[in-house]
Simulated scan of single mutants.
Amino acid sequence: MKLVLALLTGLMFLTACEMQQDPLKDAPEAVREGRAPEAEKPVQEKPFSKDAMFIDAPTVVNGRVGSPMEFKINGRVMVEGVTYKLSIDNLADFEGATFDAATGEFKWIPTRAVVAGLPSIELPLRITLATDASAKYPLISVEKKTLSLMVVNVYSKPIVQTITGNGTLTTGTTHYLDYTMEDIDAFSEADVTLDVRDCGIASYRDSIAHLVSVRNITKSTTTPNKYEGRIEIDLRNADHLASTYYCFALQAISKHGVKSEIYKRDITINTRPKSTRITMESAPTLLVGQSAQIAFTIYDTTANGSLRMVSMDDIAKVLPGSTLTCKSNYTSKFQLDCSGYITTTGLTAPTADAVYNIKMEVENTVGSVSVNTTHTLRINVKAVTL
């Protein structure tokens, strides 16, 4: 009896030791290795396109020795929740220049040492927009832009310094850009004249100067001889324009008839979104008990928009057993490809011809403007004849 008790005691001791040595032996691998469960880990999004990142700043800034060059540099990232920083890579090349990343204000007064005795000089200003890393977007995305600062040594004629503002416009609307200029001969706004001209470059599609006008000229309250104002681009009746690049030019004329250099401004015009079209409005006529495969396309006739299915009736509730899906075309964002299976096997034989309607609402977006179109797919079911 004592021998049996000794054996039992030994087995219990060994079992207890084994349990104490590896208490997580049967636990999942992630738990045994101290890893957080997958469900608790932040889901990392795929890197977004650089098309969602913008640096808003004039491409060219004109100025002169001894006069302040002031303009704004702004950034945009069109992805919700993403923050970013703006910086100037070569700020040290511009002695005395300041850049406020919070407001986007760049200020610099060129000195004669900059132009080194030349009539004028062109200096590159290199800007970087970098996103902040986050759990959702751990990869940093970077966008760069280089501006040209044109500095003249001696003032000899008026200077159009900047034209700023969003350069992507949509027909059917009115847009505004801001300008700044310098005219030493002017004592007030009445002495300043600004003309809008065509760029005169054959590579641009059409003339748009007739759609551009100077709305006001205001004397700067902070800088002598400086004037500023707004330019209106009226595209309310410009649906004839194609979606492409355009250009207009601004020229200042002093009260003595002296003309400035022409300041050219490139813009992109997108045609406003149009109602979408559908390649099939009526499905093939079916008898009760018949089935058919269907395929059709919903598209933007201008090929400029981006389509999204807002809502679609559940075809299975109308015709049990039927299916219908619409997906974005993998090469053309202005197109939705739809396919489905229609069956009438679940219907009670109708005594008269019946039409079943499936409604689909599609959104067409160009830039920041959208238009919705409701399409109806009619499914005709023929009555049973006795």
Score class of each variant (00 low, 15 high):
5 L>K: 10
12 M>C: 14
14 L>S: 05
16 A>I: 08
18 E>Q: 11
20 Q>M: 06
20 Q>P: 00
22 D>P: 01
28 P>S: 13
33 E>S: 14
35 R>G: 01
36 A>V: 13
38 E>A: 11
41 K>D: 04
44 Q>C: 09
50 K>G: 08
52 A>C: 10
54 F>M: 06
55 I>N: 01
57 A>V: 14
64 R>E: 14
65 V>Y: 05
68 P>W: 05
68 P>G: 07
68 P>E: 12
70 E>D: 09
72 K>M: 08
82 V>Y: 01
83 T>M: 11
86 L>W: 01
89 D>G: 04
90 N>C: 11
96 G>E: 13
100 D>Q: 09
101 A>C: 06
105 E>V: 13
105 E>D: 12
107 K>C: 08
108 W>G: 10
108 W>I: 13
111 T>A: 14
113 A>F: 04
114 V>P: 01
116 A>E: 15
121 I>H: 04
121 I>L: 14
122 E>A: 14
123 L>F: 07
127 I>Y: 01
127 I>E: 03
132 D>K: 12
134 S>Y: 05
136 K>L: 12
137 Y>I: 09
138 P>E: 11
141 S>W: 01
145 K>Q: 13
145 K>C: 02
152 V>M: 08
154 V>G: 00
158 P>K: 06
161 Q>G: 06
171 T>V: 04
172 G>P: 03
176 Y>M: 14
181 M>T: 11
184 I>D: 10
185 D>T: 14
187 F>L: 15
191 D>E: 08
193 T>W: 05
193 T>S: 15
199 C>V: 07
201 I>E: 10
203 S>K: 11
203 S>L: 11
207 S>W: 01
213 S>H: 01
214 V>E: 04
214 V>I: 15
221 T>M: 13
225 N>E: 11
227 Y>R: 03
229 G>N: 06
236 R>S: 12
237 N>G: 07
238 A>C: 07
241 L>E: 08
241 L>M: 12
242 A>D: 13
242 A>H: 07
244 T>K: 02
248 F>G: 03
252 A>C: 08
255 K>E: 12
256 H>C: 00
263 Y>K: 11
266 D>W: 00
269 I>M: 01
274 K>M: 13
275 S>W: 00
275 S>R: 10
276 T>P: 05
278 I>N: 09
283 A>M: 05
283 A>H: 02
284 P>A: 07
285 T>D: 06
287 L>D: 05
287 L>G: 06
288 V>T: 15
289 G>V: 07
291 S>P: 01
292 A>Q: 14
297 T>D: 13
304 N>E: 13
306 S>H: 06
308 R>H: 07
314 D>R: 14
314 D>A: 15
317 K>H: 06
319 L>G: 06
322 S>G: 09
323 T>I: 11
325 T>E: 14
327 K>R: 15
330 Y>I: 15
334 F>M: 07
334 F>W: 15
335 Q>I: 15
335 Q>W: 00
336 L>H: 03
341 Y>A: 10
342 I>F: 04
344 T>L: 02
352 A>L: 11
354 A>I: 12
355 V>Q: 09
366 V>C: 02
366 V>P: 02
369 V>F: 09
371 V>P: 00
372 N>E: 10
374 T>G: 03
383 A>F: 06
